[in-house]
């Protein structure tokens, strides 16, 4: 495991920075171009959620190892209003704000592992991993 890289998410240009850094790490990890595209797209969805729904926060990008393989783990954390009903928020098409409501469910489908914790009034943390 290497020390993670933290990127603040305060404005929409930060989402671009997250995409570029995830792309760089995915290439370094040797992911194929389809897997690169999937993880960068998932990161874009989650970074936007952090910005739009969470009112900003940060992303931590790290290369991890397990079961003899390496992967990319991305954590997105905000101190926004939190999600009242995570099950509901994971349904395709459901959205409490803008977008098509594919952010969370889509990011989950594009990742190997997906984990979400949210406390109303405290914030939300989503962690995804893509194994090589």
């Amino acid at each position: 495991m290497t020390g993670g890289e933290t990127i603040p998410i305060r404005e929409s240009s930060d989402v671009i920075r997250v995409r570029a850094e995830v792309r760089r790490l995915a290439i370094g990890l040797g992911l194929g171009v389809v897997d690169q595209t999937k993880i960068v797209t998932a990161a874009s969805e989650l970074a936007r959620n952090t910005l739009v729904y969470g009112g900003g926060g940060h992303a931590v990008l790290e290369v991890v190892e397990g079961k003899g393989r390496r992967g990319l783990r991305l954590s997105f954390e905000d101190h926004g209003p939190g999600i009242l009903d995570i099950g509901q928020a994971m349904i395709d098409g459901y959205s409490s704000g803008r977008g098509l409501g594919l952010g969370l469910s889509g990011a989950k489908r594009l990742s190997s592992e997906f984990e979400i914790t949210s406390v109303v009034g405290e914030g939300t943390r989503v962690v995804i991993t893509r194994w090589n």
Partner: peptide
């Protein structure tokens, strides 16, 4: 549209 983009969009559900 690049092929990996098309594949990802479908998986995304769009």
């Amino acid at each position: 549209m690049r092929p990996p983009v098309a594949i990802t969009l479908v998986e995304l559900g769009l």
